[in-house]
Design a protein around this nucleic acid. Structure first.
Lengths: 199, 199
DNA sequence: ACTAACTTGGAATGACCGTTTCAAGATAGC
DNA sequence: GCTATCTTGAAACGGTCATTCCAAGTTAGT
C-alpha cells in the first residue's frame, strides 16, 4: 500500500556519522546533512526524527562500526601485551593518517559537547567506556596468565589506566599530535606494566 | 579627554571563562555573555573584538589562572612522585567536586570543537601540552634523583604518559566519572612507574 | 483504474546567530 | 563651558538555525 523509501537509511547514516565526526555536532547543520546525503528535509525528519535523535543514531552506529569491532578483536586476542600494543597501533593509525586523520574519536568528542546532557548520549558514553575497559582487561588477564605483567600489577586497574590513555591519544590526535610521539608514549606505558624479564 | 570604561575587563573575562568552560563555545551565544556580564554589546565588541577573539582571550586567561599555577607548583615540588600524586589529587578535586564539577578542562574541551581550527587556539593547545609535560618531567626528574623510579624508567617518556592520563581524567570527569575511581586509576599509573622498593 | 498509505520536493516558519550602526551620554583637558 | 574622544544603550542587520507544513508524486493492494 504505502510508498517505499527511495534511499538507504543505513547509507545515509554512514554519511551523517562522517559529518558529525569531522565537524562536530554544533558545527554540522541540518542543511549540511541535506546537502551531503542528497535527500530531503522531509525524508530526514520522517526517518530519523530531529537533530538530537539523528546524532544519537550516528553515535550508536559509530560505536557499532568502529569501537566495538576493535574491542572485540582486542578481547579475543590471547597474546597479552602484544594484543594491547596492536590495539593502540591501529588506533593511532586511524587517528593520525588516512581519511580520518585529525578527526579524533566521535565518542571522545561527545564528552565535551553540550550534547552530553542527553541521557541517551550519556548512556552511550558510559557503555563505551565499560566496553573499552573490559576489552583491555581481558587482554591484560591473558598477559598476566603468560607472566607478561610485572608482579603486583592488577589487570583491572591497569585496564582503566590504559583506557584513559586511549582517550588521551584520541583527544590529542584531533589537535594534530604526532603519530611517532604517540607510539612512543604508548610503548612507555606498556613497558611500565610489563614484567622486567620482557624486553 | 576620553570617557573611561565603566566596567572591569578582567572581571568580565572571568565571567566569560566560566560560560565557555561550562557550556562550551558553540553553546554560548553573545547574548549569554551580555546577560551574564551585564555589559552592552558595543562595549563587548569594542573591548574584546568578536567571539573568536573573546574565546582566545578566555582560553589564555584560563591557562594563566588555572593551568599554569598548578604546573608551576608541580614543577617546583621536589618530593618526586608525591608531588605528582598531589597534582592529580588537586586535578580530580576540581573536576569532580565543588562549583566546577563536571565542567572538565577548558583546554581539553577546546581540542574537540571547531574552534581548534583557529591558529591562535592551536598554538595555545600546543603550548599548554608542552608546559604540562615539562612540569611532569621536572617532578619525575626529582623522583628519579631520589631513587623513586623503577630502573629503566625514562622521566621524559613517563611525563608524556602522565600528560595523556591527565587529559583522560579531564575528559571523563566531564561525563561524570567517579572521583574515587579516578584516584585509584592515577594511583595505579604512578605505582607502575615507582621503584619496587617504594610502597 | 481506484484508493489508502506513505514519501518527497520545496517553501515557509519563527527563533537565534554574530555583528554593525548610530545617536546619546560621560569624561578630561583647555 | 566647550570640545575632542571615548563609552554606552538600543535597535537593526542579514544570515543561518532546527523544524513544520502541504501539495504533488509514488507505490501496493483491491
Amino acid at each position: 500500500m504505502p510508498d517505499i523509501k527511495h534511499f538507504d537509511p543505513d547509507a545515509v547514516l554512514e554519511t551523517v556519522v562522517r559529518l558529525f565526526w569531522r565537524q562536530g555536532v554544533a558545527g554540522t547543520g541540518i542543511q549540511d546533512v541535506v546537502t551531503a546525503t542528497g535527500l530531503n528535509r522531509s525524508s530526514l525528519y520522517a526517518t530519523f526524527g530531529g537533530k538530537q535523535d539523528l546524532y544519537g543514531a550516528a553515535l550508536r552506529r559509530y560505536i557499532d562500526q568502529w569501537s566495538r569491532p576493535a574491542f572485540r578483536s582486542l578481547a579475543q586476542d590471547q597474546r597479552g601485551l602484544r594484543a594491547v600494543a596492536e590495539f593502540f597501533d591501529g588506533l593511532i593509525a586511524v587517528r593520525c593518517a588516512g581519511e580520518h586523520a585529525r578527526w579524533g574519536c566521535l565518542v571522545v568528542n561527545a564528552h565535551t559537547g553540550a550534547e552530553n546532557g542527553d541521557p541517551e548520549v550519556r548512556d552511550l558514553l558510559e557503555q563505551h567506556h565499560r566496553e573499552l575497559r573490559d576489552a583491555l582487561h581481558a587482554a591484560l588477564v591473558a598477559a598476566e596468565a603468560q607472566g607478561q605483567l610485572a608482579s603486583g600489577t592488577d589487570p583491572g586497574a591497569a585496564a582503566e589506566v590504559l583506557a584513559l590513555l586511549a582517550y588521551g591519544v584520541n583527544l590529542r590526535s584531533r589537535a594534530g599530535a604526532d603519530a611517532k610521539a604517540l607510539h612512543a608514549t604508548v610503548a612507555t606505558a606498556l613497558q611500565s606494566l610489563a614484567s622486567p624479564t620482557v624486553a
